[in-house]
C-alpha cells in the first residue's frame, strides 16, 4: 500500500460534510467524557481518530450511531448531525440511524450462524414485507463479499459457520454484513487491534478500497496505521479535540504542542 494520505489525490475535495457536531458534551453518570466537541467530518474520505487511552475517541465514535445509549447513564448535550440531520432529535428513528451509520468493533463479532446468514442478516431484517428470491439474495451476498475482497475465499463455503473463519476474515465479514443495509457512514473502533500484522495489512487495504463509497471514521491506537490509512486525522486529549487536519500535515507539522508530543511518543 504505502500510501500516505495526500490531499492532492482527493477526488472530490469540495465534498460536503458527512458528520458535523456542535458543542457536543457527553457524561457517563457524573463523569464528563467529551467537552465541547466541534467537528466537521468530510464525506467520502477516511478520517482517523487518535489519542491516548481514555481520551474519548471511542466514546465519540459510539455516539455517532447512538450505540452508547444502551448504557442508561449516558447523557448528552449539543448536536451530532449526520448529513444535516441531528440524530438526537425527537423525531429521529434509532433504527434508521443505525442503518445509515454502521459500526465495526475491535473484536470481530460474527454471529454464530453461517457466512450467508451473517451477510443477509441485516438485509432480511429490513425487507420483511417483500420476499426476496434466492437469486436476489445470492446477488446481494456476492456483492457484499466482493466489496470486502472475501468472495473468492468463501464462495464455496457460504454455509459454514462464520465463527470458523480466521480473525482477519471475520473482521472483513463484519464489514461486509453492514453493506447490504446500504449505510453511508462506517464507524470502525480499532478494527485491526485483534489481528496479526498480515491481517492488519489486509483489512487496511480493504478500508482503503472502500473510501469514496463510504464516509469512514476509524479509531486507532496505531499511529502508523492512522498515517498510512487515513486522509484526515483528529487528535483528541482528555475529552477535547486538540487538532483536526490533513493526516500528512498533522504528522509532519502538527499545530499543537500536545499533538507533537503524542505523535513522538512522549505520552500515551
Amino acid at each position: 500500500m504505502g500510501n500516505t494520505a495526500a490531499s492532492a489525490e482527493q477526488p472530490d475535495n469540495q465534498a460536503g460534510i458527512a458528520i458535523q457536531t456542535d458543542q457536543l458534551n457527553l457524561w457517563y453518570g457524573t463523569f464528563q467524557a467529551l467537552f465541547d466537541v466541534n467537528l466537521a467530518i468530510r464525506k467520502g474520505i477516511i478520517t482517523s481518530l487518535i489519542g491516548p487511552s481514555g481520551c474519548g475517541k471511542s466514546t465519540f465514535l459510539r455516539s455517532v450511531n447512538r450505540i452508547n445509549e444502551r448504557l442508561g447513564y449516558v447523557r448528552i448535550s449539543g448536536t451530532i448531525e449526520v448529513f444535516d440531520q441531528n440524530i438526537y432529535d425527537q423525531d429521529v428513528e434509532l433504527i434508521q440511524v443505525r442503518k445509515q451509520v454502521g459500526m465495526v468493533f475491535q473484536r470481530p463479532n460474527p454471529l454464530p450462524v453461517s457466512i450467508r446468514d451473517n451477510i443477509l442478516f441485516g438485509h432480511r431484517l429490513h425487507n420483511k414485507d417483500r420476499r426476496y428470491s434466492r437469486s436476489e439474495e445470492e446477488e446481494i451476498l456476492e456483492g457484499a463479499l466482493q466489496q470486502v475482497l472475501l468472495w473468492d475465499k468463501v464462495k464455496d463455503m457460504l454455509d459454514r459457520k462464520a465463527t470458523e473463519l480466521s480473525l482477519e476474515e471475520q473482521q472483513k465479514l463484519c464489514i461486509a454484513r453492514l453493506l447490504p443495509v446500504k449505510p453511508t457512514v462506517l464507524l470502525m473502533d480499532e478494527p485491526c487491534s485483534a489481528l496479526d500484522p498480515k491481517g492488519t495489512a489486509a483489512v487496511e487495504e480493504l478500508i482503503w478500497e472502500l473510501r469514496g463509497k463510504y464516509t469512514i471514521l476509524i479509531v486507532t491506537h496505531n499511529m502508523a496505521q492512522a498515517r498510512r490509512a487515513s486522509e484526515e486525522c483528529i487528535f483528541m486529549l482528555m475529552g477535547k479535540v486538540v487538532e483536526h487536519s490533513l493526516t500528512e500535515q498533522l504528522f509532519v507539522t502538527p499545530a499543537s504542542r500536545e499533538t507533537a508530543n503524542y505523535i513522538e511518543g512522549r505520552y500515551g
Partner: peptide
C-alpha cells in the same frame, strides 16, 4: 457482542 452486532445492523 452478538447483541451489539445485531443492533448495529438496525435490529
Amino acid at each position: 457482542a452478538f447483541r451489539e452486532a445485531c443492533w448495529n445492523m438496525g435490529a
